[in-house]
């Protein structure tokens, strides 16, 4: 019986609707500051409380606090792909995101992935994925279209 049990996933095993979890991350001011230092993006949006209190953005919009980098959220979304695909299943090839709501210090964001389409091309096997990021209130803060190239 165990002869038929595969211990690793292959392209044929993965159906549309397959879910893969990404990380759940408590976002802190310190994490945002460290991402700023690591990515060299020191925009005051991410550290300057005074600037955020005083600034009226488009349409008079104001933010409640400093906000996390869109690219920090992007980076966490790629983890949903790499944590699942690496080291053997395949490669993270593409991610297209929309940042829909700000991520604030104190938020806890949860990332979830789902395979929404499969496609074989002349030279490759591909999975099209939706990646969704929600905060602790269940609000969708970012969405993304991921593309995985599967080798197995």
């Amino acid at each position: 019986m165990t002869d038929n049990v595969k211990d690793t996933l292959e392209y044929a095993d993965i159906a549309v609707g397959f879910q893969f979890p990404g990380p759940t991350v408590p976002v802190t001011r310190e994490m945002i500051a460290e991402f700023a230092a690591a990515s060299f993006d020191h925009n005051p949006l991410h550290w300057d409380n005074d600037f955020m209190e005083k600034t009226h953005f488009a349409g008079g919009k104001q933010f409640d606090d400093v906000i996390g980098h869109g690219l920090m959220t992007y980076s966490l979304m790629t983890r949903a792909m790499t944590d699942w695909l690496w080291p053997d299943l395949g490669e993270h090839r593409r991610l297209e995101t929309r940042f829909r709501k700000p991520v604030y210090p104190g938020d806890e964001i949860t990332i979830q992935g789902e395979v929404v389409d499969k496609r074989e091309t002349a030279k490759g096997k591909w999975l099209v994925c939706n990646i969704t990021v929600k905060n602790q209130r269940g609000e969708t803060v970012a969405t993304g279209d991921g593309l995985a190239e599967v080798f197995a």
Partner: peptide, 27 residues
């Protein structure tokens, strides 16, 4: 993300305070 800032000069418009990232795609 790191190279967007490390490779560009201090006068690059991406550094303008208040620049809000709405979306990103990379292949």
């Amino acid at each position: 993300a790191l190279f967007l800032f490390a490779c560009t000069g201090h006068d690059h418009f991406m550094r303008t305070p208040g620049t809000v990232n709405m979306g990103q795609n990379w292949f």
